[in-house]
Amino acid sequence: MFWKNIFKKKDTAPTESLEQSTVDEPQAKEEAETSQSLFQRLKMGLSKTRKGFVDRMEQLVSGRKVDEELFEELEELLIQADCGVPTAMELVDRLRERAKGERITEGDEIKRLLRQEITAMLESHAQSLKESTASPYVIMVVGVNGAGKTTTIGKLAYRFKQEGAKVLLAAGDTFRAAAIDQLKAWADRVGVAFISHQEGADPAAVAYDAVNAARARGSDVLILDTAGRLQTKTNLMAELGKVHRVVQRELGRDVDEILLVVDATTGQNALSQGRMFSEAVPITGIVLTKLDGTAKGGIVLALGNELNLPVKLIGVGEKYTDLRDFNAAEFAKALFD
């Protein structure tokens, strides 16, 4: 099955695959054609982040001597990027140590070090979607309300479809008004199969049917939507656990990917989300959405550093093609270059 190429392409530029677009929709085609290299796209998406962060960074470090005040200001800068106090302190502590060990006295040098440290921190948690030959390849998408689950699923479906995979979307959000219609609209737009129950139906029943339907129809990829839920709602988290158990049982193996969708504008609460969703279901990775705003996305650092949760995908725009693999080096580079 040649759609499995999606896993291999990541080592090269993922945009190559987009140029082989086979979707007939003019909009999608146009998007594919005009899409730039991943790096450029990411840089564009991150330009606001970059601008704010780097400008202040330049102001902060250039022509200055390394002193305690500088470190404190760097810490503030990281906190402002939503890195969280513990992670910011850890990074700056490392900088402090290295500056001392390597006898660095110029502020500009510190910038290089910080970039290295951030890249290292991001790299240690960078991962792409799990490779698997199992069929159907099953992805469960979870997260709080309004994080961007359904949109992410739409983009994911497009991506798999581009690779030639037979995709099935399952409307597991039976709670929110018109959530089923929203996913259906995505399925129609992208041109993939869709399965749903009525609003208010048991999401576990939807999951059950979805797995069996995927098998019966010979789908390559099954993506299961779930209702948005705040991580503190014990009952809803238990429901999520049940959905997962049903999928796992029907599948007879582990679910390939359970992705937690996190809005890039989220602050420290993302840590609580990561922690509590992980308790309910074995989260395999994070999708960081809405990175095209001014949000710094620094929460990525905290999620990796404090919870060991790898970021797998990032959403950098509203187009189908704006869902990218997370690449630590490029992310850090786009942030600083």
Binding site: D82, T265, G267, A270, A295, K296
Partner: peptide, 12 residues
């Protein structure tokens, strides 16, 4: 405004 918003809330 989402109460979970981080530092970016001011810009928005």
């Amino acid at each position: 405004v989402d109460s979970m918003t981080g530092q970016d809330a001011v810009n928005v």
